[in-house]
Simulated assay, not measured.
Amino acid sequence: MTDTTSVFENSPEAEFGDYVALLKPRVMSLVVFTALTGLLVAPVSVHPLVGFAAILFIALGGGASGALNMWWDADIDRIMRRTRNRPIPAGKVSEGEALGFGLALSGISVVMLGLAANWFAGAFLAFTIFFYVVVYTMWLKRSTPQNIVIGGAAGAFPPMIGWAVATGGISVESVLMFMLIFMWTPPHFWALALFMKSDYAEADVPMLTVTHGRKATRTHILVYTLLLAPFALALAATSIGGPVYLAASLVLNAMFIAGALRIRRRDEAAAEADGYRVEKRFFGFSLSYLFLHFVALLAEAGLAQFGWGGW
Rank of each mutant, 00 (worst) to 15 (best):
Y136H: 04
A153I: 06
D73A: 09
G151R: 02
A14L: 01
K141G: 01
A271S: 15
L113E: 08
R81W: 00
K24N: 08
S45D: 15
V27P: 08
W72Q: 05
T209L: 11
S239D: 06
W163S: 04
F157C: 06
M255S: 03
M28S: 13
L250W: 06
P187I: 11
K280T: 07
P12E: 13
P186Q: 01
A53W: 03
D77V: 14
A123N: 04
P230A: 13
L176H: 01
Q146M: 08
V31D: 15
F124L: 15
L115S: 07
S29E: 01
F16N: 07
P89F: 15
E95D: 04
V223I: 09
G61M: 02
N69A: 14
V20Q: 08
A299E: 00
R142E: 10
P48Y: 11
N253Q: 05
A247W: 15
G51S: 10
A296R: 04
F16H: 08
L235Y: 03
G309D: 02
N69V: 11
T185Q: 00
G169V: 01
G155S: 08
V110P: 06
G310R: 02
T217P: 07
P48R: 07
G51H: 13
L103D: 07
H293C: 09
H188N: 10
F127I: 14
L22S: 13
D199M: 06
F256M: 12
Q305W: 05
V244M: 12
F306T: 04
W119C: 05
Y136W: 03
R264L: 03
F127M: 15
L298S: 00
R265A: 15
L103R: 05
T167I: 07
F283W: 11
Y19V: 11
L125W: 08
W139I: 13
I88T: 10
A104T: 14
F8H: 13
M112N: 06
A53G: 03
L194C: 13
F195R: 09
F189S: 04
M1V: 03
L140E: 07
A260C: 14
F157Y: 12
A236Y: 03
E173W: 01
A201S: 14
K215E: 14
L297C: 00
F127S: 15
R277L: 11
G38C: 12
A237F: 14
P25A: 09
E268N: 14
N85Y: 02
F291H: 01
T167N: 06
L194T: 08
D18R: 04
R264K: 08
A304P: 00
L227I: 09
I79L: 05
R142A: 02
F231T: 13
E15M: 03
D18K: 02
A201N: 09
V165W: 07
M196Y: 12
E202L: 11
F189M: 07
A64S: 08
A203K: 12
R281L: 05
A90P: 06
M196R: 14
G66L: 10
R265S: 15
V7G: 11
